[in-house]
Design a protein around this nucleic acid. Structure first.
Lengths: 144, 144
DNA sequence: GTCGCAAATGCTACTATGTTGCAAAACTAC
DNA sequence: GTAGTTTTGCAACATAGTAGCATTTGCGAC
């Protein structure tokens, strides 16, 4: 489908993970890269429709799963039962999330990881910390 | 069912919220109070069976919902799609959670709230912070 | 004590989210 | 172009949570 004059960043990112460059993966990754906030399966599916990319619900799940396993994307459980996905930027998992309680959007706050120098009680072994901030995003905070 | 010689802490806690003292609510709250970790609907349902309390799945959902709305309990989204519930101790929402990546259990770490002196980028209004620590709990950490 | 009312329960059915298995199609290497 | 493996698409299934409504039950009034 793709002629050799398409060196898009999404394609090379997928190829670097040792995966096949398919139209679905490229489209999904481009959507994730363009989005400033974490997206649900449903939102990505709609964006896929806008692009005119034929897709299946299951394929989308598997594609997202592959992206997460490859370390390209990251998934997180929101307030409801829908998981959200976003591109994992430079750092590994070391970034915080901001959840707007009004519009429900979730944005990734890169480059800020507080000192989680918590005094753990027993023999707890800390591996990584996940910080979720709740409040109002700039858009919603301005209106109210 | 209950004679007036039953001044259990769970009963009085429910009554203090202006709710009716039913066997289901009392039993659920006692289970939550006795549990050291957050429980899923399913786990609470099993515990309810052990107590011999007849219950319905929907009733359990509504009971937990009521407890959360009353401020007695708090709910949180875990790694999978199952929400977990625990009793909200002294503090409001100001406590961290520890998630064991091996056994999947979630415990509430009371009395530790790190300095979330995060420099928020735009006009974000911080309301509250939720900290989830990942790693191994004492039981799992010892075994491996 | 018992009567009545509102809250809570229990049931069925339904929606939403995510998963599994397998055949067909597409991507990559040769 | 052909072969081989991955990925997709479809259908069915599994799990988590919700909605509506009739019945029961706690609780106050009488």
């Amino acid at each position: 489908m793709s002629d050799h004059t398409h060196p898009s960043p999404a394609e090379s990112l997928i190829a670097a993970q040792g995966g096949r460059v398919t139209r679905t993966r490229v489209a999904v990754l481009e959507i994730l890269l363009a989005a400033e906030q974490s997206l649900t399966h449903d939102e990505i599916g709609v964006a896929l429709d806008d692009k005119g990319i034929k897709h299946d619900r299951v394929t989308l799940y598997r594609t997202l799963d592959w992206l997460v396993e490859s370390g390209v994307a990251h998934k997180m459980a929101g307030d409801d039962r829908a998981r959200r996905f976003g591109v994992a930027a430079s750092g590994p998992h070391e970034h915080a999330h901001f959840h707007c309680d009004r519009c429900g959007k979730v944005v990734c706050l890169e480059g800020l990881q507080p000192a989680v120098a918590v005094n753990l009680p027993g023999g707890y072994q800390l591996d990584r910390a996940e910080l979720v901030l709740h409040g109002a995003c700039p858009t919603c905070g301005k209106g109210a």
